[in-house]
Design a protein around this nucleic acid. Structure first.
Length: 747
DNA sequence: GTTAAGGCATTTTTT
DNA sequence: ATGCCTTAAC
């Protein structure tokens, strides 16, 4: 409904054309659509975020929806922040009252507000997957279940998977499957433990929020009444419970705009349901569909390559990227001798690029790879070449051991019944409360259905342990009580500082040796700094005065703990130094770079061997290739290695099928100048053996006794030639060629 | 309560 | 090759 001309009382004036200016016809369709359901299929680089931001501006300024009546969901905190920022930039309206957040943060907000209706304690704690795993580990042990058979990791995976599907332990009927029965038992015990300790894991946030809708019609009605429009970004990444939550909330009353790209769905392995896109058009009747196919990022050579690759996926909704821009350079393809050579080549290319573009920054360059293990060799080569680099991913700040320990003390001050926190720090630093004592506490807690803290106090009162243990336990409880007392009336960062000091964590890490210790101490300092700047944000927020009905009454510490659990923060420091960006293909989604290297594009590595024989997973690998290719704006360089050392084993992979799927007209092979490709000794020693045997390194062969294998190396000459073969089942062996009688195999 | 030695797996990651 | 984790020994 276009509401025509209405006075823009408080909102800055902006007319219709300004919001649609610079948008292409499809983007305009999406932005200016009536308030009905909409599915926007947005190809890579097609201005997806732009459409979302303009759409929200349109809703506020043209449709006159109040910011508080618009809900926008993203998948990462980073994306939320970006959207807020761009909305403010475009409209000048403070995005304060917009409900923009991740599924998890929105669910969390609901549960904090409606904790009673959700059957949670008011001070419930969000636990991360690390805490979750520890808790499951304890449960599995306490239940005397064989840990080798039921690994906590698997149980964790199982539980999260069930929750993602909206299933509680009581819903699951394992019938005669004993394994499933045990899993369900573990799941049920885990649920009880969480409920007792007021702990909520990530999947639980979503599940509870969903159940809140189902069990509390009045709460649901309240929000259905409040929201006039909802938007979902990265829709292809929604899992079942997220979709269900959204669908129930929307009901028949709230129009939804889903934005996504089926070709960029790369998180199926963690529960994302690409099918939700199809489901959407069925469940949200009359949804208008818009395809954004014009690309503003890459050259047409790059786009054509991407289109050709993704075209090999049979089950697609179908999209074809195009550009008004130039063809650009062909895609470079380099066959490296091994992974060292590959890394060296990339360094050389970057050095040349820098000579030709001395005014441009290194951060315009990205190296993308399938798995993190590949970064090591690249890193070494970069250090040798003295090129600046930054590796994305890896451990996040709040995931670090020392930070988690410090946070556990803070959590314990906040909530004595947080068993996960107590277990973590009761003997860190060591205070003579050993495994045996803790075990007894656990037993006692289980018998009473109480928390560990209660077990500790009870033990101390009744003196049911050795005098030695009792002294230690008393000291510990005293420590925590003292901490709370001291912290009750000081600033947040002072609280953090005090806890770090008085807990003995500083001394604990000082005693550690090696470089790590120093880094840990620095991180603890950094935590105080983080608390300081958090204080600032809090203060600012208070000044702005949130709408009262949204206000959550939380102490700064509570808010700080929540943020630490839900927003792991930016990955690493050093982000200010201009450097080449190295990351996995997964973390590259949503980013773009003028120059992109795709490294290790080999069968077995990419597509990964774990996915190679499952058509569904293979399609996802191909989508990953599509994501990788479309990150490049001007120049794409693909490299692969003839041989690669991985997990201490030499491997001979053939070039990835994804390379073959790119039409040769878009590719230019790069040969190195006069550089010697292979180490000389190896080259000569293998030549004679090759002639004598008629076989080649990397070739697959068959042996009468050992079966199939791959030739890794050869040496010697004539009948004396020896071959090193890695057999699929019998390991690696050296064989004399004239006796081995190896038969070459195809493929 | 701390350290050394052996076993074992080893894609991708956000919340 | 490496790192993580459990177990065994100081």
């Amino acid at each position: 409904m276009h509401t025509g001309r209405i006075s823009f009382d408080k909102l800055p004036a902006m007319d219709v054309t300004a919001l649609l200016d610079g948008l292409n016809p499809e983007q305009r369709d999406a932005v200016a659509a009536p308030l009905n359901h909409q599915l926007v299929l947005a190809g890579a680089g097609s201005g997806k975020t732009r459409v979302l931001v303009h759409r929200i501006a349109w809703l506020m300024q043209i449709e006159h929806l109040s910011p508080g009546s618009i809900l926008a969901v993203t998948f990462t905190n980073k994306a939320s922040k970006e959207m807020r920022h761009r909305i403010e930039e475009l409209t000048g309206i403070s995005p304060k009252h917009l409900w923009i957040g991740t599924f998890h943060s929105l669910a969390h907000r609901l549960l904090r507000t409606h904790w009673q209706q959700a059957n949670l304690p008011e001070n419930f704690q969000v636990i991360d997957s690390d805490d979750q795993l520890r808790l499951i580990k304890r449960i599995v042990r306490a239940m005397n279940i064989d840990e080798t058979d039921f690994q906590p990791k698997q149980a964790q995976w199982y539980i999260n998977q069930q929750k993602d599907e909206g299933l509680r332990a009581k819903h699951i009927q394992p019938f005669n499957d004993p394994r499933a029965q045990t899993m369900v038992t573990i799941y049920g015990a885990y649920e009880d433990a969480c409920q007792r300790g007021g702990m909520v894991d990530f999947a639980e946030l979503l599940l509870r929020a969903h159940e809140l809708w189902l069990n509390q019609p009045s709460v649901l009605a309240q929000y259905q009444n409040r929201f006039r429009y909802m938007l979902v970004d990265e829709f292809q990444d929604t899992n079942s419970i997220q979709y269900a939550w959204l669908r129930v909330l929307a009901g028949d009353v709230i129009p939804v705009m889903a934005v996504g790209d089926d070709d960029q769905s790369i998180y199926g392995w963690r529960g994302a349901k690409i099918e939700n896109i199809l489901q959407f058009t069925e469940d949200f009747k009359g949804a208008q569909q818009v395809k954004l196919e014009q690309n503003y990022r890459s050259t047409s050579n790059i786009l054509n390559a991407a289109n050709a690759v993704i075209d090999n996926n049979p089950s697609r909704l179908g999209k074809k990227l195009w550009t008004e821009g130039e063809a650009g350079e062909p895609i470079s393809l380099y066959e490296a001798f091994n992974e060292q050579d590959e890394a060296r080549f990339i360094c050389e290319q970057i050095e040349q690029w820098k000579i030709a573009n001395s005014d441009k920054r290194y951060e315009k360059i990205a190296i993308l790879y399938r798995s993190n293990a590949q970064s090591r060799v690249l890193e070494e080569a970069f250090i040798r070449a003295a090129l600046p680099y930054r590796i994305y991913g890896g451990q996040r700040f709040f995931d670090r051991l020392e930070i988690k320990n410090a946070m556990a003390y803070l959590r314990l001050i906040q909530n004595r019944h947080d068993d996960a926190a107590l277990e973590r720090v009761i003997n860190v630093p060591a205070r003579a409360i050993g495994e045996k004592t803790v075990q007894q506490l656990r037993t006692l807690a289980r018998e009473n259905g109480s928390s560990l803290w209660q077990a500790v106090t009870q033990t101390v009162e009744h003196k049911t342990l050795t005098a030695r243990a009792l002294t230690s336990l008393t000291k510990f409880t005293q420590l925590i009580e003292d901490m709370e007392n001291t912290c009750s009336d000081i600033e947040l960062h002072e609280q953090v500082d005090h806890v770090i000091q008085s807990s003995g964590l500083i001394e604990h890490h000082q005693k550690e040796k090696g470089e790590k210790a120093q880094a840990r101490l620095e991180n603890l300092d950094e935590l105080v700094t983080a608390a300081k700047s958090f204080n600032l944000e809090e203060a600012q927020e208070k000044q702005l005065e949130n709408a009262p009905e949204d206000a959550l009454i939380q102490s700064p510490m509570e808010a700080f703990l929540d943020q630490a659990a839900l927003d792991a923060g930016d990955t690493q420091a050093d982000e200010f130094e201009d450097s080449v960006q190295m990351m996995t293909l997964h973390s590259a989604k949503g980013l773009e770079f003028p120059l992109v290297f795709l490294a290790g594009v080999e069968e077995g590595l990419f597509p990964h061997k774990m996915s190679a024989d499952d058509p569904v997973r293979l399609e996802e690998e191909r989508r990953l290739a599509y994501v990788g290719i479309t990150r490049a704006m001007q120049q794409l360089v693909i490299t692969y290695a003839e041989s690669r050392r991985l997990h201490g084993q030499e491997q001979f992979n053939s070039p990835s099928r994804f390379i073959r799927e790119i039409p040769t007209e878009y590719i230019q092979e790069v040969r190195l100048k006069a550089t010697i490709k292979k180490p000389v000794s190896n080259f000569f020693s293998t030549t004679a053996a090759k002639e004598a045997t008629g076989l080649n390194i990397g070739q697959r062969v068959w042996h009468a006794k050992f079966g199939e294998g791959v030739i890794l190396d050869m040496e010697g000459q004539g009948p004396q030639s020896r071959l090193q073969v890695s057999f699929d089942f019998d390991g690696t062996k050296w064989l004399v060629a004239s006796y081995a009688n190896l038969k070459p195999m195809d493929a």
